[in-house]
Nucleic acid binder design. Structure first.
Lengths: 199, 199
DNA sequence: TGCGTACTATACCGTTCGGTATAAAATATG
DNA sequence: CATATTTTATACCGAACGGTATAGTACGCA
């Protein structure tokens, strides 16, 4: 290693650009020619670096989760002395900011991609990856809510499975509503109602 | 009219088949060859009868709304002597049955299609149609909730705009969750929490 | 029966798709 | 500098895309 010509592009920067394309246009509707044109790299470079389109998407999705979604998720767990309702508010408002941010495409990459799953041109491996991500997210949310019970921020009889499914459903619904043109204010109003039914 | 060879297929039956394909695979990922193979008609017949792919989808979407979604929506308005919470329950449970029905594709055609909007291969005319459908739905829901206030089933200070956005968000979230593999029971539990926060 | 009409089947149009073979250009190490 | 290595750019692959032109076939009407 270290031998040979150097890459003329930054891998993470390129990954971010590709992620935005997938986020905006979806997997199948993002063509290779669009990718290489927007990323500013040649087709063989793309294949040498990321394998193929499916692998590139997989890397983009991981990047999306760790760089964009995870920070919002942390708003729910961090600062546990803060009342749960405030942290839920921070969490939902954070997601809404992300979905409606004019710097990134509208909505949520997961929702966008999940809608494409089971389509004939969508790789089965990616469908499995999405399902796995959903399950992991659910388990993490359950764990967080269980902890809230033990610290007394949620009543002992609260059903963490139902609650985490509910929270996720609202989040996903917000993403679709965002794509439907709802404003940040309207989305926050939705979140407020949801929060009031949790705590 | 009445002159010439007769159509060898039933228009509505064909429309229903096409709708299911779009519902399952989305607009761009439903190819013409798949359509003619599944519909059992030839490509020129399809174009003679429906114009082009975009017009066919538009007709399918109208068919979906009137034949599949409208009956669930009526569960919310009909039998107004029934408590609102019961009608909301009928409405959400009806939608869930539709989304999770094994006879039709999982999820919701609107969510599926809205996710595709703004993609380069998705006709702009269809994007406008989806937005319009969303606005009409919202207005109808607002009208229904306003009426609930006047008959005393909702408090006078209830914000019908926020509430209808919330109800829609939950419905859309349920559709995504359904695609993520959640069971009817889990989806109903989500709806139950949502209903409890409305009435 | 014969004619005009409307539907159907086959074959084809140019374009784009995801992916790759070939070879030239650039760089780290000897 | 020489060479091995890795990147680039160009050109190309077969397949599938949405859509259509041509021509054949079934039917209502006179």
């Amino acid at each position: 290693m270290g031998v040979g010509r150097k890459l003329e592009f930054d891998r993470e920067e390129t990954l971010d650009k590709a992620m935005r394309l997938f986020w905006d246009h979806g997997y199948t509707n993002t063509s290779l020619s669009e990718l290489i044109s927007e990323l500013g790299i040649s087709k063989p470079s793309l294949y040498n670096t990321f394998g193929n389109k499916e692998n590139l998407f997989s890397a983009c999705f991981d990047f999306y989760l760790s760089e964009y979604v995870k920070p919002k998720f942390d708003l729910l767990t961090g600062a546990s002395e803060t009342p749960l309702s405030d942290r839920l508010s921070n969490y939902f408002y954070g997601l809404i900011d992300l979905m409606a941010d004019s710097d990134t495409p509208l909505g949520c990459l997961y929702v966008k991609s999940q809608a494409e799953a089971q389509s004939p041109n969508f790789p089965a491996g990616l469908s499995r990856m999405l399902l796995e991500a959903s399950n992991v997210h659910h388990a993490e949310l359950e764990q967080i809510l269980s902890n809230e019970i033990s610290v007394g921020q949620l009543p002992a009889e609260a059903d963490v499975t139902k609650l985490s499914n509910y929270i996720t459903a609202v989040s996903l619904g917000l993403a679709v509503q965002c794509r439907s043109g709802k404003s940040i204010t309207e989305l926050r109003d939705i979140a407020d109602i949801a929060i009031s039914s949790i705590v």
